[in-house]
Amino acid sequence: MKVSYVTAALAAIAVGGVVWVAQAAPADDVKARQAVMKELGSNVGAITKMLKGEAPYDAAVAQKSADAIAAAAKKAPDAFKPNTGDAGPTEAKATIWSNWQGFAEKAAALDTEASKLADVAKKGDQAALAEQMKALGGTCGACHREFREKKS
């Protein structure tokens, strides 16, 4: 009988541990997601700054930023995959997970346009880069419109 008390106690600790992990994980997931989105934003900002004439055009910076955007775009679907939690302060709408198919399509569109952006950046053609940046922005906006609830 004593053994079963111990088992029960151990089980309780184990369950407690799992619950603790389950509570801790979403916040980290949310942070990881936000890091991916920030990575996209800062690099889009770096390129558009040059396209607007706010900074001199530098093909190397454009290339580096476009590569970073393409890499971050690849991380997006995983960063949002089910059970990554919608706990804590997040702008992610629950419809991401109730309409995963729809979200995955938007994420795939981002991936496609981001890869094209990296290719265009290689060629160093500023006008083409400007056009492709608008195509990329279109995929960002389409997804934000459906799946983001801006809070700040």
């Binding site: 996209l40 934003g41 800062s42 690099n43 889009v44 900002g45 770096a46 558009t48 700054k49 396209l51 607007k52 004439g53 706010e54 940046m133 608008k134 922005g137 279109g138 960002c140 906006g141 389409a142 997804c143 934000h144 419109r145 459906e146 799946f147 983001r148 801006k150």
Partner: peptide, 29 residues
């Protein structure tokens, strides 16, 4: 500045590199 706002109205991309997804996205399109 004027460049930022004009570019935002063209692309939806703000100076921080964020992209609007509100009703403004429809207005821009």
């Amino acid at each position: 500045n004027q460049n930022d706002l004009a570019y935002f109205l063209e692309s939806g991309i703000d100076p921080d590199g964020d992209v609007t997804g509100s009703v403004m996205d429809e207005v821009i399109q």
